[in-house]
Simulated assay, not measured.
Amino acid sequence: MRLDLLEALNAERAARRAAVVVTELDSGAQRLVTAAGQASDPLARDIGAALASGRSGMVGEGAGRAFLAVDVPPPRLLVVGAVHISQALAPMARLAGFDITILDPRTAFATPERFPDVPVIAEWPEEALPAYGLDPFTAVAALTHDPKIDEPAIAAALTAGCFYVGALGSRRTHARRVERLAGAGLSQAAIGRIHAPIGLDIGAASPAEIAVAVLGEVIRALRLGGAAAGSAEGAAA
């Protein structure tokens, strides 16, 4: 790979943006296609499909054959709320390959003792999220049941195009949440992306079972192309 391409690719990686290195097999020519430049590329449709799947592979036929090397940021899971569900969810998410962080301003709960080997941010979402840097390859699970903590994080996640945004609470609780988020200026389309009540419907009862349901829903969103869709929404916002 040419040095300029490698430097550009590393810049995309550092910014947690997806990119594809296209190698034309007939000529050996290479180019880097970023999410911003995808639409104007001759292989835009194939590149879009590759980004959605996160898999590298061959496309085209004859002289038009090319290899698409997909480079997608590792998925992250930001859990808002240092609660019992989070304690069960954290080790499961790490085993599933997620870079997990716990966010909760309540210092009595957000402690390293309760979440060993997991980054814990004991700050309010408004203070912590700019430095954390939400993006389309991040999932956000809001679990505190406290609107003052959950909703700023939910709003920021929707604005950033996170591939998954879920919130704990009953349908009645979520209906009131929707009213507040709409009043804060979020569109109905954005609010409609919230998974609430959070988690797959598996009849979960205990904190550990709810954690399984949440992780399953996050993985489904990731593997069905939610990150690629979120990237497109974020670029359009």
Rank of each mutant, 00 (worst) to 15 (best):
I85R: 03
Q87F: 00
L89R: 07
L89W: 08
P91V: 02
M92C: 08
M92S: 06
M92I: 11
A96H: 05
G97C: 06
G97R: 10
F98G: 05
D99P: 10
D99Q: 15
I100L: 15
I100R: 08
T101Y: 01
D104F: 02
P105C: 08
R106Q: 00
R106P: 00
R106S: 00
T107L: 14
T107M: 13
T107W: 05
T107F: 07
F109N: 01
F109M: 01
F109E: 01
F109Q: 02
A110V: 01
T111K: 00
E113M: 06
R114W: 03
F115D: 01
P116V: 03
P116D: 03
P116N: 05
P116F: 06
V118I: 14
P119D: 02
I121Q: 09
I121F: 09
E123D: 15
E123Y: 07
E123Q: 15
W124E: 13
E127D: 15
A128N: 12
L129C: 14
L129M: 14
L129D: 14
P130L: 07
P130D: 08
A131Q: 11
A131K: 11
A131T: 12
Y132M: 14
G133S: 12
L134K: 13
L134Y: 13
L134G: 14
P136T: 10
P136W: 09
F137V: 07
F137H: 15
A139S: 13
A141K: 12
A142H: 04
T144H: 03
T144I: 08
H145P: 06
H145I: 06
H145S: 10
D146C: 10
D146W: 08
D146M: 11
P147C: 11
K148Q: 10
K148H: 05
K148A: 13
I149L: 14
I149K: 02
D150C: 04
D150M: 04
E151N: 12
P152R: 12
A153E: 08
I154G: 06
A155G: 11
A155R: 12
A156V: 12
A156P: 13
A156R: 13
A157D: 03
A157W: 03
A157R: 04
T159G: 10
T159R: 15
A160M: 06
G161E: 08
C162I: 01
F163V: 04
F163H: 11
F163E: 03
Y164Q: 07
V165M: 05
V165E: 03
G166V: 03
G166E: 03
G166Q: 02
A167F: 04
A167V: 09
A167I: 05
S170W: 01
R172F: 08
T173E: 09
H174G: 05
H174A: 04
R176Q: 14
R176Y: 11
R177E: 00
V178A: 10
E179Y: 04
L181M: 04
